[in-house]
């Protein structure tokens, strides 16, 4: 017997006090934040900043960005893990509280999660006007040798690969803009 999947519905414009309350100054405890760092984790600290642009080129002020990543040694947190519990690998940031509608994560550069795979971060995007969430990936411009071998990047139209690659804009800070539409429309995946 197969039951039908519950349909997605848009996150709408008013998620902030429920999903990212502390970021927006609401008196409700956040389960996740945009700062994934943990005192017990060793690795290269990085910042990932970006904006999400609509089809008219405006930076979207009411989107929610979630990231999911491996730790610096390439391990994902698994249920029941006893090691490295401090770094969950999950972060959330709304685009409505920063300057210029930016999102900004403080985290570690992930390790490669398997042979042949380049370091990457899974990104999930939600917003008013988006009826079903979208998945994309962050790769890193300074991993060009690994990126060239990565099977997921390799399956993407070469002309669109650059939309998945975060550029270092200053030491330790990468920029990853997301374009919902247009010539530079970000590659979104059917996961």
């Amino acid at each position: 017997m197969s039951k039908g999947q519950t349909p997605s519905q848009t996150v709408g414009p008013f998620f902030a006090y429920g999903l990212t309350p502390e970021q927006y100054g609401y008196a409700f405890r956040s389960l996740a934040s945009a700062d994934l760092r943990d005192p017990a984790t060793e690795g290269q600290e990085i910042r990932i900043v970006g904006q999400i642009f609509d089809g008219a080129g405006a930076a979207i002020p009411d989107a929610l960005v979630e990231i999911w990543q491996a730790d610096p040694e390439g391990r994902y947190l698994q249920p029941g893990d006893t090691g490295n519990r401090g770094f969950t690998g999950f972060g959330r940031c709304g685009t409505g509280s920063g300057a210029e509608n930016e999102f900004a994560f403080a985290t570690y550069k992930p390790g490669a999660v398997g042979a042949g795979q380049a370091p990457h971060i899974c990104v999930i995007v939600f917003m008013r006007g988006l009826l079903s969430h979208l998945y994309t990936r962050i790769y890193f411009a300074d991993e060009s040798a690994a990126n060239a071998q990565d099977p997921v990047l390799g399956a993407v139209d070469p002309e669109r690969r650059a939309t998945l690659i975060a550029e270092a804009v200053e030491p330790g800070t990468y920029r990853f803009d997301i374009h919902m539409q247009g010539e530079r429309e970000t590659v979104f995946f059917d996961v």
Binding site: R128, L130, Q181
Partner: peptide, 22 residues
């Protein structure tokens, strides 16, 4: 109209990145 992606989603075979989660 200005927020929905317009190009076909690119198929991504699930690996550990997609089969794990918070």
């Amino acid at each position: 109209g200005l927020r929905g992606a317009t190009r076909p989603l690119v198929p991504l075979p699930q690996g550990s990145t997609e089969t794990t989660g918070p």
